[in-house]
Structure formats: C-alpha cells, structure tokens
Design a protein around this nucleic acid. Structure first.
Length: 766
DNA sequence: GCATGCATGATTTTT
DNA sequence: TCATGCATGC
C-alpha cells in the first residue's frame, strides 16, 4: 500500500471562495487525501459505505475550485445514468452553480456515443448512426445464421449475440479474434458471422452497445491526431465503479489517460458483481501495474452500518481469495446481530418477512426504510403475492424496463421507419404489426428481394407490390403501409414530433390493435404508449429522443415514497436501507446453480461478493432467511442452507429456527463438507440445528432424535418408508409413498399430486 | 396466413 | 411456473 500524501501545504485559493475550502471540512483524512491527490494516477479503494460518492464529487469540485481545470476539461465516467445524474446534482450543489458546463460527465456509453458521432466517418459510419437494442441485434443475427444454413436451434442467435458481446467487451474486432474463439460457434463459423454482422451494421448505419466503445478504440488507435485532440482536452479523468470496467473500457481509459496521466479511479473490488457481463475485477487488482507510480488510498471507515453488520459482511468476504483486502471499521454502536432464520418454504418465508415488516412499521418505522433483496427476480413473486394480499405497499425497483417493453419498441420502430424508411430492422418489426396479412413468406420474399437487388426492404417492397409476386391481402396491406409511411414522413417536415407520433400510432392501427386486445395487459400497454408520447414532448427533436432512449433505460426513479423496496441484489448496489431482508440463502439459489455449475471459484467468489453487497446495504438491521423447501421452475425441491450462512462469523449472528426455538448457540460455525443430503451423511452444524429445532417445533409425535438420526444416516439406502405407506406432510397433506430411495421419497399426495420429498418431513398417517 | 396446443428451458442485466 | 417457439390444422 502506498503512502497517503496528506498535502497540507497552502495552495492558492481560487477567486470567489470565501475563507478557504469549506467543502473539505468534515472529510476524514483518507477521504481528504483522495480529494487532494491531484497529480498522476490515483486509485481510491472505497469500501461499502465509506463515502465514495462524496469523495468523487468533492474531488471534482476541488479540481474546479482550485482552477486546475475548467468544467469541459474533466472527463468523468460512470456506469449508470443514475450515478451520472447524482454526480451532476451533487457537484452542482458543491460549487453552487449549474453544471451544464460539465459536458463530459456521463456514462461510458453516452460519452463514447458522443465521441463516435464526431468521428463516425473514421469507422465508415455516418454521424446519424442508430444504436440497436438487443432485440434488433438478435433478429439481425438470426437472419445471418439462416443465410448460412446453420441449425438455429443448435446455435441460437441469442448465444451468438452473447459471444459477440463478449468479444466486443474484450476489445476484439473480427480480425483480432483468437484462434479458439473462432471455433466457439457453429464449427468455426463464429468469425465469419461476426464479420457479416459488422458488415450489416455498417450498411444499416447502426451499431450496438459494444460497438460504441469498440469504435472509439479503433478511432483512437488508428488516428493519433484524434487521440491527441482528446489528450489536450481532458486534463483530469475520473472513473466511478472501476471494478466493473470491462477490457474495452479499460483500454479506452488507458488510451485517454496517456495524455495528462491524471486519472483517478474509484472502486471496490469486493463489490464487483458484473463479471458475467464482461467486467474484469482484474482491472482494479492490477491498477498499480497498469499505472506506474499510482497513489493508492483506502477508504475503510464505514459511515453506514452497525458494527455487527460490518463484522458479518467482513467475515463473509474474507473467504474470497482474489481481493486486495480492506478492513472496514466503524465507530458506530454494535447494534443488533444479523438475524438468520430457517423457514419451512418460500411461502412461509414471505409470510415471515411481511410480519417482520409490519412489526417494524408498527414501531413507527416507515415502509420506505425497508428493502427486500433477492438473488433472482423470480423470487420476487412470492413476496409480491404476499404483499398484495396484505395490501402492504411495495415497489419493485429495476424490473422490466419501460423502454424494453414490446409496445414501446414497436412504437419506436414506427418512428424510426418514418424518420428513415431504409431502417430495415425497424421496417421488418412493424411490417405486419398490427396484422396486415403480410406473413412469414411475404417477409422472407422481401428480405430476399432486398438482398438480391442490394436495396432496403422498403425499396424492395415498392418493387414487389408492382408485380404479381405477392397477391391479395398481403399486396394491398403492403401498399397501404408504404403510402402511409410516405405521408407521415411528409408530415414530419412540418409537425411537432410528439404530435406526429400520436398520429402515426393511431393511423397505423397500432393503438387500435391494443384497444381491441382482450388480454389483461392491454390497458397497461395503452397507458405506456400515452406516457411515451408525453415523454417525447420533453425532447426537442425525434433524434434527441431516440438517442436518449437508446442510452437510458430507467424512466422510473427509485422509490422515495412510503413503500417497501423489492429488488435484486444487483439492483441494490449503491443503495442503502435501515432494514434489509435477504431471503433465499440456499444452495442452488444463492449461490446460484449456474455459478456452481459453470464458473468455478471465480463465479463462486462473485456470488459471495453479491452476498457482501447485500449485507452492506443495511444500516441498522439485516435479516437473512433460508428455507428447507423451495419451488424452483414449478417443482418442489428440498434445498440446503447456503454455504454463505456457515461463513458468517458467529459472533455477529443470531440464528433461530422457524418455530421460535432459540438454538442459543454461537450461530452457524465451521466449514462444512459439501454434500448431497439424499446420498451422504450431511452434517452442517447450522443445518442440523435447523433440523432439530424444526423437528421439535412441529406438532405431532415425530421424535426429535429420529428425525436427526435419519438425516445423518441417510447415506444408507434403508428407509423408514416403503412403497404403499400412507404418510402425512405439513405442506402437501396426506399421500401414498410411490418409491423410497434412502431419504428421498416420491409420494403421490391426495391433493397436491406426486412430489419428491425428504423423508424427515413426512410422518405416519396415524 | 393465422390460431391453437404442446414441448422446452430458464435464473443476475449498469448501457 | 411461465414465456417462447415450434408444428399442426384450418
């Protein structure tokens, strides 16, 4: 660790600042060092809740206030629009004036898009290029795969999209693909398809998200003069969430930083949770090598959570090997221990959480103080069901996004076609929506004709409607559509874009289609379309609007109202709540099956970081729950408590069973052997205690010892039950045993149907 | 060309 | 469970 240069020497005060830099007051020594380390590369390792955003914004303000750079000479990049917005607001408050003058504060993608617009011709694009969404991307790839005669089911467009995305994230243009990468799709056709895809994008004057950065790289690498221009321009670089950068973003930063060498990256390796999206934790781990002479500053004083929460989180993350290592500390009260609860199943878990919520609220706390953080969105359902039933106010954060909804994309496609009739992807999307009698075969014909004549689909359609190649309804439908588009395009020259939007949606029959739709979602879709037209009015031009929606996904703001927040752990990064529920801490759920199957230790460590992120969201109290049974993909499964529960340091944890029996013990200690509960002796202390308590707590005469013994003995294939036995199960009721394999029973329940259950959860009928 | 019914497979998502 | 995509039959 490098020393902390606590520069205390007097510096020239900028004009207009009264009585010194008051904005530095209240920063601790490390924070202040991070703000004042001005020259050369700086890495700020900011643990959860250590005032990262404050440091970032103060530093920005400091650079401006000391006159080291003017607003347009600072490049500040974030990952989310939300983070960019927050920085703008906070810097504005700090320097006491509007921040309109910070043109280079934004997300990686929006800044890369700006740069690309200025130099598009250097990568054979026009500056009016469009940004494709994933939907367009996949449809384009599907066409290319079909053209190659590849089996679409074996090699899906989605898979290819993910591959190409991954290559782009690593800064790989088609010509730079390594040998093995070429073979990762359709027996060596990967590279060819990637090339074909890029060629198509160029013809369409479009690029995808990955291209925004990749094209920037190409421009910088091939045009030293352009890069030099940006070197001259950017005197300071600020990077937020550096642990989430991918290789392309890292290369981009490195190229830009070569000018001033004043790059300051802020991040936390322990909060790197986007590896599956191409983020390289390695970037932050390697910072000192990449930027020689770097100052590294650790922010370890936490201002958010109680000592118990911090202790639990720190103990957990200590199990990771690939980390720089920080020790968070606080002067706060120890507070309550982290609660760990074992619960029967997912429904009971939702019930428990809702009861606890009502409990806190009845003690005068607000719903908005509370968050429920899940690993995967399917887990939200149980909570939503429960909350709806109770009328408990809640809000899902992050869910399905406004701009990704079908009706919004369809509407956008109409606007794009009106703006430019040669936008094939948009044209294909709306050509038969609503239904105009133009089916698959007609669309295929259009594509083929277009390809053969080397014209756009709309152009091909114009040719074809004059011939007999398309008959009847399809022909008139197509004719009408072409005529309509021409008319709208004409109107666009004189009309406000939001006004025209309404006309287009109406005259095309698109709104009519949803009005006649009887499905329960139709009304909501119409509302969304209305909202869409309204939000378009906030932009001066259609172009400005489309650029905005391509790069911004969150129309809704995080809930400030009187509601419980429900979201995934990923969506929770950067947020904090007094009370946090962390349900579903079970093997195969969290850590997820996928991470267990595929990614090896690095994927597991990422899951652990996710757990760490979850815990460190809590200010006062964290409650972790796990169940014994969970419905996954519509099937009941017995599940084991997550290994992360065993990794929590006992001193900071209070563990209790569902039925309220205190186990009184020091929590769930010890390293557990990985085991299958059905086929081997499984002996997690935590699991056993849960079992014991559960057996005791249950009504009926099931002896505790027996339940315990059977669990431990379940390696033998002997079972208490045999086919034909009648049993009772707390959840499923009465049933008849079909098969018995060790502790694993298959039971045909009278009401619930055939289920697989562990024998310790059933008892005799009598 | 389109509606319907069945098989299939999935989980995190900053832009 | 649920959304998607296929084959089938009109």
């Amino acid at each position: 660790m490098t020393s902390l240069p606590l520069s205390q020497q007097a510096r020239p005060q900028p004009p207009g600042m009264r009585g010194g830099a008051t904005y530095l007051d209240g920063l601790n020594a490390e924070q202040r060092a991070a703000v004042e380390a001005m020259d050369g590369p700086v890495l700020v390792l900011a643990g959860a809740g250590t005032g990262k955003t404050r440091v970032l914004t103060t530093r920005l303000g400091h650079i401006l206030a000391t006159g080291r750079a003017r607003p347009w000479e600072i490049l500040s990049v974030t990952f989310t629009n939300k983070a960019a917005r927050e920085m703008k607001t906070r810097v504005g408050a700090l320097i006491g004036e509007g921040v309109e003058g910070l043109p280079w504060l934004g997300t990686f993608h929006s800044i890369a898009a700006q740069i690309l617009r200025r130099h598009a011709e250097l990568v054979e694009l026009k500056s009016s290029y469009t940004i494709l969404d994933t939907d367009d991307q996949i449809r384009l790839l599907r066409q290319l795969i079909q053209a190659e005669g590849i089996d679409e089911k074996r090699w899906t467009p989605r898979f290819l999209a993910a591959l190409i995305d991954g290559w782009k994230n690593r800064g790989l243009t088609p010509d730079k693909l390594p040998e093995d990468a070429k073979w990762s799709f359709a027996d060596g056709l990967g590279q060819k398809l990637y090339e074909a895809y890029q060629a198509r994008l160029q013809i369409l004057n479009a690029c995808d998200f990955g291209d925004l950065l990749l094209h920037n790289l190409t421009i910088f690498q091939n045009h030293a003069d352009v890069l030099a221009e940006y070197h001259k321009k950017f005197r300071y670089l600020l990077v937020d969430e550096y642990q989430d950068t991918n290789v392309a973003q890292y290369l981009w930063l490195r190229l830009l930083a070569r000018g001033s060498n004043n790059i300051c990256c802020v991040g936390d390796d322990d909060q790197s949770i986007y590896g599956w999206r191409g983020a390289e934790v390695d970037n932050i781990l390697r910072f000192e090598k990449d930027f020689p002479g770097a100052t590294v500053i650790r922010l370890e004083r936490n201002y958010r959570s109680t000592a118990n929460i911090l202790g639990a989180a720190s103990g957990l993350i200590a199990a990771n090997k690939a980390r720089l290592g920080k020790t968070l500390w606080t002067e706060d009260d120890p507070g309550e221990q982290v609660q760990v609860r074992g619960i029967w199943d997912g429904e009971a878990e939702a019930r428990f959480v809702s009861e606890e919520i009502e409990n806190w609220v009845s003690k005068g706390r607000a719903y908005s103080d509370i968050a429920v953080l899940v690993r995967a969105s399917w887990q939200m359902r149980a909570f939503e069901d429960r909350f709806l039933m109770l009328g408990l106010p809640y809000k899902v954060i992050g869910g399905p996004r406004f701009f990704e909804r079908q009706e919004i994309r369809d509407a956008h496609a109409y606007f794009r076609v009106v703006r430019s009739i040669d936008d094939d992807l948009a044209f294909e999307r709306i050509v038969n929506t609503p239904k105009r009698g133009i089916g698959q075969t007609s669309v295929q014909k259009l594509i083929q004709t277009a390809r053969a004549a080397n014209v756009s689909m709309a152009e091909a359609a114009r040719m074809i409607v004059e011939t007999d190649e398309i008959r009847g309804g399809a022909r008139t439908g197509l004719k009408t559509l072409l005529r309509d588009i021409d008319r709208w395009a004409h109107q666009a020259e004189t009309m406000r874009h939001d006004e025209l939007a309404e006309i287009v949606l109406d005259e095309s029959g698109y709104t009519g289609m949803w009005r006649e739709d009887k499905s329960p979602q139709a009304a909501g879709r119409l509302d969304n379309l209305k909202e869409l037209v309204r939000s378009m009015g906030e932009f001066d031009t259609l172009e400005a609007y489309l650029e905005h929606v391509a790069l911004v996904s969150d129309l809704d703001t995080a809930g400030d109202g009187e509601e419980v927040s429900l979201m995934t752990l990923h969506a929770a990064k950067g947020l904090e709540f007094p009370f946090v529920f962390l349900p579903g801490w079970e093997e195969t759920v969290f850590p997820s099956q996928r991470s267990l199957d595929e990614g090896g230790t690095s994927a597991l460590e990422e899951e652990r970081r996710l757990a760490y992120v979850g815990l460190t969201r809590a200010r006062e109290q964290a409650v972790i729950t796990f169940t014994a049974n969970r419905m996954i993909f519509g099937r009941w499964q017995s599940v084991l408590p997550s290994r992360f529960i065993d990794e929590l340091p006992p001193a900071h944890v209070e563990a209790r069973s569902e039925t309220g029996y205190y186990d009184g013990g020091p929590g769930f200690e010890g390293v557990r052997e990985r085991a299958d509960p059905f086929n081997s002796s499984y002996s997690s202390p935590g699991w056993k205690r849960f079992q014991d308590a559960h057996a005791q707590g249950r009504k009926g005469s099931q002896p505790t010892l027996e339940g315990k013994a059977r669990l431990i003995d379940s390696g033998s294939s002997a079972s208490k039950w045999k086919p034909g036995d009648r049993v009772f199960h707390d959840k499923f009721g009465y049933g008849t045993v079909k098969t018995a394999d060790g502790a694993k029973l298959s039971v045909a329940f009278d009401k619930a149907g055939e289920k697989k259950v562990v024998d310790s959860f059933v008892r005799g009928e009598a």
